[in-house]
Amino acid sequence: MIKMRNIRILGKNIRDGFRNVIRNFSLSLASISCIIVTLLIVAVAMIGSYNVENFTNIIRDDFTIVVYMDNKLDTNAEEEIKENINNLSNIESITFNSKRDIAENMKKEDPIFDTIISSWGESENPLYDTYLVKVKDSDKLSKTAKQIEKIEGVVIVKYGEGMIESLLSIFRIIEKILIILVISLVLVTAFLIVNTIKITIFSRQEEIEIKRLVGASNFSIKQPFVIEGLFIGIIGSIIPILVTIYGYSTLYEKTGGVIFSKFITLVKPFPFALYISGILLVIGIVVGMFGSSRAVRKYLKI
């Protein structure tokens, strides 16, 4: 019986909260727009950083140091180099790629290569025997490469010359900037909601006073305001959610899931976009309710 009564009170407060958003729409609009802008940026930041995370992992798996060895070395000397490399820390695996194999692969790639390479005799192959070295920690890639360079008999070491690394560090900086931006926007939004609810509270001082006089509990006076914040959050998250779902799946379709180069592949839109939407809705609701309950605590003196 008591439970039914509480449900009815909650139902009334939800109706009142929603009605207040509509009734004070010009006031709520400032908070709603702020939530929209914040959540749009949150969406871009989340989609961006998740994708960056995704393809950096792909790139990382591909990080290889190619070690070219002197043509004059015999098999024993090459084995010695392998051992020397293996003795370094940060080495995950070493694969031997002989100059003959490289030549065979090149032949398959292009008919012109095929013609040229076929004309070489066994001893005329000008290519180098190589080791393909994979590292454990890709952040120390260049350090490891430099150590390998110093080993005797190693002619050239190639590892992308830091290009990929600097690309990754740029991504990381962008990620950090986005996080800071998102946090500050969330705070600004919460602050705006505090203000909206504050003005609502002030403009309804008389109503609150009357409710108190006829025996409304503090909780039942506060609850509609908190629900009002909740609705501001929900309404504010609708547009960002639509933009996320439609925008991202359109982007995915238009690009075929690949940007710039085949390295950078996008995460499939479903269910990814739905997860992001869920997070946006939760952020909207939390920010809305947090803002309003703060305002209620601060300005509703009862």
């Binding site: 008389e206 109503e207 009357i210 108190r212 006089l213 006829v214 025996g215 509990s217 503090n218």
Partner: peptide, 22 residues
């Protein structure tokens, strides 16, 4: 206590000079 006042108010009707209608 302040937070229990509403229980009293539910048992009392109050009428004012300025009506206090919404």
């Amino acid at each position: 206590r302040n937070r229990k006042v509403y229980k009293l108010r539910r048992k009392i009707g109050v009428v004012f000079q300025d009506f206090k209608l919404l």
